[in-house]
Design a protein around this nucleic acid. Sequence first.
DNA 1: ATATTTGCAAATAATTTGCACGTAA
DNA 2: TTACGTGCAAATTATTTGCAAATAT
Lengths: 128, 128
Amino acid sequence: MRADYVTRPREAVAEVLRAERRFFSANEIHRALSRRDAKVSLSTVYRTLEYLYAKGDATVRRDDSGESTYMHCVPEHHHHHAICQRCGRVEDVDCDAIERFAESLRSIHGFELDGHRMEFLGRCRACR
Amino acid sequence: MRADYVTRPREAVAEVLRAERRFFSANEIHRALSRRDAKVSLSTVYRTLEYLYAKGDATVRRDDSGESTYMHCVPEHHHHHAICQRCGRVEDVDCDAIERFAESLRSIHGFELDGHRMEFLGRCRACR
DNA sequence: ATATTTGCAAATAATTTGCACGTAA
DNA sequence: TTACGTGCAAATTATTTGCAAATAT
């Protein structure tokens, strides 16, 4: 893993990410920083996102167009996301029932489970 | 949508897809065809996959590296996939309970649901 | 005949990499 | 000081597109 140097570009990228609870593409972050004083090269944005992800400070998600998008996060228990298709805001969805169901796959299909992934797409309360 | 001309490239791509119940990348299909007599250009493979998808004869999935992968399918009810991480074989997972849970999101989070996506990753019975 | 697909080469778009230079520790 | 991050330009990878030639109807 990369060393934990505290640098201006890293702080700048992390700040953009922390500003809103939604997924950002490398490009969005790059453009956001270009608008302000804080110019950071696109490749550094990519490297920083990778770094933050490795550190556990960000989650990744491939959107439908295949772009990687990143969201700030704090290390926490396993959960799923409800993503608003209008404002992009992300809500966490906890559900032990789903976890239990996932486990039951083993008996239903003889499927040894390593992991699972779920996403709920729709409109949040505010955007409805 | 594209017209339903029956052509050698289309038949060839569909044949590869039908041969195994797993997701194929455009490249895999292209290489598979190159090995045999049936050479088809990579761009045609892409166009054909898009065509098959539009027709409802294939499903798409972005794998973790961001590549689009396609699997042959027949029009059927909504379900989820259990994907073997070793052989790539895909099993369908039906679960009304999960559907109901997804719907309940509306009351739990005030989230108006358009759709949801789930994937189970692990080892199938044969690969365990 | 004529609409449509195909192959090829060139264009895009997202991402990665090599390397000289700047900077945090 | 010196190990490590940064910027830039070039490379890579997946995918798309324009267009003339081939083919299905």
